[in-house]
Nucleic acid binder design. Structure first.
Lengths: 195, 195
DNA sequence: GAGTTTCACATACCCCGGGTATGTGGAATT
DNA sequence: AATTCCACATACCCGGGGTATGTGAAACTC
């Protein structure tokens, strides 16, 4: 095995095992040497690749965040109408909350582990950006009333984050539909010709 | 000084210093022995009163939460109309986010330190309860469309939590008004005779 | 293709800080 | 006045993040 191959292999193994444990046990309860051992290497490898426990977490969170953003975007792009794209994206996000990797890592631990500012920057780079662009497009198209988009993005982002966490705890299948309907009503308040 | 007096005094001192440090530095970066020392006692006192570092944090968070709930309720009670009460309460909550004790302790650290379930139970006992009762009242009065209130509470609670954190970072005074207006639009979507 | 360099780790160690077990002195009880 | 009680103080343990250094095999040089 060539060196770059080996390097990539251990890096992936650490990332994978870290993701599994961070999602299951939370940042604080994960011990780095155990992650390394389960990945077939030692703690030294983890520090060589990620510099610190926080570094590994950051890499894991970034990966999960990217995947989530892609999933939401993909679901939105299956619709033609911009308003339906927004709705579909929101629903996809809510559904994604059932994945502990999303709920535990991204929504619960990341803000306090990475700090709120870095977390927000990370969120902005993926899922929040889609939300912002969708809203800006709707404002430009006159579907949503002219207004500063930034506060709106924060409100909706927070609403969905919390709702996703709530859904993750309530195994009720009907809850997802209820939350989606409630979100529809809330979003409906933004439409210009709101009925 | 009598014993119960002394007991209360050290307890209050620890609570006060802990609150200050948790708000300023975050749970992880606070070292318990330093809190105790600044409070004029030793680590032993802290363990005697609160059992663990987490115990102290729990007590601090509960206190902040209670204060916040009272503040929001007080602001709401200054209005007569139920709909205006809801708006006033929401605005008061958003404004409260500038206090690091609220933003850092309650909104950022508490969910991951106490666990999301305990955090939610705590939130429910104070601020979220007011929101639920307000919404239930409005539904009963026919102002808000008949629907499951639970998902709605989660959505709005999350929206305001995140918005409060955002406001805490943007020293802009206009931002609060923008966020309040955006919240008005979102809430407006819930009214039955929505215009 | 032997020697040299590089580098991806492994090994051994440090040390901070949460937690615990036990001591103590003064208030409360009898 | 003697005893009990209890709110702490003191001394200690130890898990786990971080670091400094060693090592062996791949990659490069001539």
């Amino acid at each position: 095995m060539t060196r770059t191959e080996q390097r990539e292999a251990t890096r992936r193994a650490l990332l994978e095992e870290g993701r599994r444990r961070f999602a299951a046990d939370g940042y604080h309860d994960v011990v780095l040497s155990e992650v390394a051992q389960a990945a077939g290497v030692t703690k030294g490898a983890a520090y060589h690749h990620f510099g610190s426990k926080l570094g590994l977490f950051r890499a894991v969170a970034a990966q999960v965040q990217e995947e989530l953003g892609a999933r939401v975007a993909a679901e939105a792009d299956r619709r033609a109408d911009p308003w339906e794209q927004l709705r579909a994206g929101c629903r996809a996000f809510l559904a994604a909350g059932t994945d502990p990797a999303v709920s535990r890592i991204l929504l619960v631990d990341a803000p306090t582990v990475l700090g709120w500012d870095e977390w927000r920057a990370m969120d902005e780079a993926s899922s929040a950006r889609h939300l912002r662009e969708a809203l800006e497009g709707l404002v430009a198209a006159g579907v949503v009333a002219e207004q500063p988009v930034e506060p709106l993005v924060r409100l909706l982002s927070g609403a969905m984050n919390e709702a996703a966490l709530w859904l993750a705890r309530t195994a009720d299948a009907a809850a997802l539909e209820q939350a989606a309907l409630a979100l529809d009503r809330v979003l409906g308040g933004l439409r210009t010709g709101a009925a």
